[in-house]
């Protein structure tokens, strides 16, 4: 059985998407992967889920540098929607940033679990807690 049922990957780079999808499949990390190109698309998707009263993904992998709406803007919008949901996904920022300010920013969002350095690896996935640990942050 997969570790998770639904995860969301917000990423605009094709190769990164390919690498993530492949590694998630290989290690049976999640049953389903939903891809969104940027923050705006991701917010729209979550809005839809909330409206349809469907469960949110358990994990969100989030890139920062994206066109239209970047990772930070997504997080601001997302936290506004939070009051409406019963349980919250674990959010991992997936980035190749070297800017210490980005880590500070990441910490300022209470919804962010941690920052993972690209590329996504088996070790990253192993360190992410299972379903029972959701909301234990």
């Amino acid at each position: 059985m997969s570790k998770f049922k639904n995860i969301l990957l917000v990423e605009d780079d094709a190769i990164t998407k390919l690498v993530c999808e492949r590694i998630i499949k290989i290690y049976d990390f999640s049953e389903n992967i939903v891809f969104k190109e940027n923050g705006k698309e991701a917010i729209d998707y979550i809005q839809e889920l909330l409206t349809a009263q469907q469960p949110l993904p358990e994990i969100i992998f989030l890139d920062i540098n994206m066109p239209v709406m970047n990772g930070w803007e997504f997080l601001k919008e997302y936290e506004k929607l939070l009051t409406q949901c019963s349980h919250t996904p674990q959010i991992f920022i997936l980035s190749s940033t070297a800017n210490p300010e980005d880590f500070v920013s990441a910490n300022s969002f209470k919804t962010v679990n941690s920052v993972l350095a690209k590329p996504l690896t088996k070790e990253h996935l192993d360190n992410i807690g299972g379903r029972s640990e959701i909301n234990n942050k």
Partner: peptide, 24 residues
């Protein structure tokens, strides 16, 4: 400083891709 962060990010991004691909 900003320039150095951005450039390192932009260099690391394709390198990360290469590493990711190599892992697979």
């Amino acid at each position: 400083q900003q320039f150095s962060f951005i450039t390192s990010h932009n260099l690391r991004a394709p390198v990360a891709n290469l590493l990711g691909l190599l892992n697979l």
